[in-house]
C-alpha cells in the first residue's frame, strides 16, 4: 500500500508515482493519435494488445502496464467507442518512449542480453551483456561455497 502526494492511501501502483511525474500523453490525446498499433506488434493484427483494455483505477480511466505492474491513468476525455484503442495507444506511447519503470531498471539489473525498449522498437540498443553479480562489501563467501 502506497501513500500518494496528497496523503491518500491506495493499494495500486501508479506509473506517475514510479516516474515521479505525469506524462503529457496522459492528458493530451493528440500525442497518441498517430500511434500505429499494427506496426508496433508482431503478426498481421495487434497480437498481444488484444488483451489490453481500458480499465478504471481509483475511479479514473487507466491502462495497465504489465512491464512495471502499474496503472497509467488517462485524463483526457475518451470518445465513446474508442476506449480500448486509446488505452492501447497510451500504453504503447509509454513503452516506446522508454517511460515504463521496468524499462528504466533494465540497464542496471537485467542479467542477460535483451533490447532495452522491448520488441516494439526496432533499433533499440541491447542491454544486459555485461551483468556482474553484486558484491556485498565486507562479506566473504563461506569456505564451502
Amino acid at each position: 500500500m502506497a501513500t500518494s502526494d496528497t496523503g491518500t492511501r491506495t493499494v495500486s501502483i501508479d506509473a506517475e508515482q514510479l516516474a515521479g511525474k505525469r506524462f503529457d500523453y496522459q492528458s493530451d490525446m493528440s500525442l497518441v493519435e498517430n500511434i500505429d498499433l499494427d506496426a508496433l506488434t508482431p503478426g498481421d493484427d495487434i497480437n498481444w494488445l488484444e488483451d489490453v483494455e481500458l480499465l478504471v483505477e481509483d475511479g479514473i480511466p487507466a491502462v495497465f502496464d504489465r512491464y512495471s505492474n502499474s496503472f497509467i491513468k488517462i485524463y483526457f476525455e475518451i470518445p465513446k467507442g474508442r476506449e480500448n484503442e486509446l488505452a492501447r495507444k497510451v500504453l504503447m506511447k509509454h513503452l516506446t518512449d522508454g517511460n515504463s519503470y521496468g524499462i528504466t531498471l533494465k540497464d542496471i539489473h537485467c542479467k542477460f542480453p535483451q533490447v532495452e525498449l522491448g520488441p516494439w522498437v526496432a533499433e533499440s540498443k541491447t542491454v544486459g551483456t555485461d551483468w556482474k553479480p553484486p558484491v556485498l562489501e565486507g562479506w566473504d563467501a563461506p569456505a564451502s561455497h
Binding site: T41, P42, G43, N47, W48, R66, P119
Partner: peptide
C-alpha cells in the same frame, strides 16, 4: 509446454 508464459509474438 510449448510457448509457456509467452508474452507476445506468434
Amino acid at each position: 509446454s510449448a510457448g509457456e508464459n509467452m508474452m507476445s509474438g506468434s
